[in-house]
Design a protein around this nucleic acid. Structure first.
Lengths: 116, 116
DNA sequence: TTGACGCATGCCGTTATGGGTATACGATGG
DNA sequence: CCATCGTATACCCATAACGGCATGCGTCAA
């Protein structure tokens, strides 16, 4: 097995939300549960297309589905987005500070490393 | 031009950070500028591999490069991560609150955590 | 039971991706 | 000028990703 193309989107939230349409689905679901067809229609995609995106989102745990008679309602489960929020938050000081102070901060880190 | 595979990683920060190794590069760069070879070594990848990831990061604006003699130093520019942080932040209330149709599954998890 | 509806899946084709290896290129040192 | 170092690129391979279309499957209504 020589060359992997990319980590499977199926196993990684970062990857799951890399797809713009999947992000749109998540945004729509903030307003409440929806059946597949409705999502597909609102986002201008085919029903199979929506189903596939929803599957990815389900497999990383960002949505859950519930059978409601003939329909299947998809609902948001945003807990998986928290790690992403926190990871990016780890860079917050780098966009909140001026680059001068940033440089100083970097110098501090360099110093610290050298003294270890 | 029938089937596009995916939005180019080149044009989208969400996509750029979907790659675990690229995330590692960004984390490393928080400690300061580094030449390609050093990054490659610290992350256990080949130099061309590192260069390619850095190129993607550069094209979405997450890193900047600066020539320093024979070397080329890469530095972090985390401003592009802010939109990601804010986008995920838009879901914060969904992981901090319990809301109507979130079923017993979620409740169970909360219970479990409180009892730890 | 039969049809219609709602949705998931399978298959196909195209494109992008990541890794590896070899190589081209710019800068520096002799 | 020539050799070398540091880096970027080109090329190739294998695979995963998306989209479209057709179809399968379960559910509800008549």
């Amino acid at each position: 097995m020589a060359a992997m193309a990319r980590a499977a989107t199926t196993s990684d939230v970062f990857n799951a939300i890399a797809e713009p349409q999947r992000r749109e689905i998540l945004v729509l679901l903030r307003a409440g549960e929806r059946p597949v067809t409705e999502l597909a229609q609102e986002l201008g995609m085919t029903q199979p297309g929506a189903s596939k995106h929803l599957r990815v989102l389900r497999e990383v745990g960002l949505v859950r589905d519930r059978k409601a008679g003939k329909q299947r309602l998809y609902g948001l489960d945003a807990r998986g987005l928290r790690p992403v929020h926190e990871w990016t938050g780890g860079f917050e000081r780098f966009w909140n500070e001026s680059f001068d102070r940033l440089d100083a901060y970097v110098q501090d880190l360099k110093q610290a490393r050298q003294e270890e």
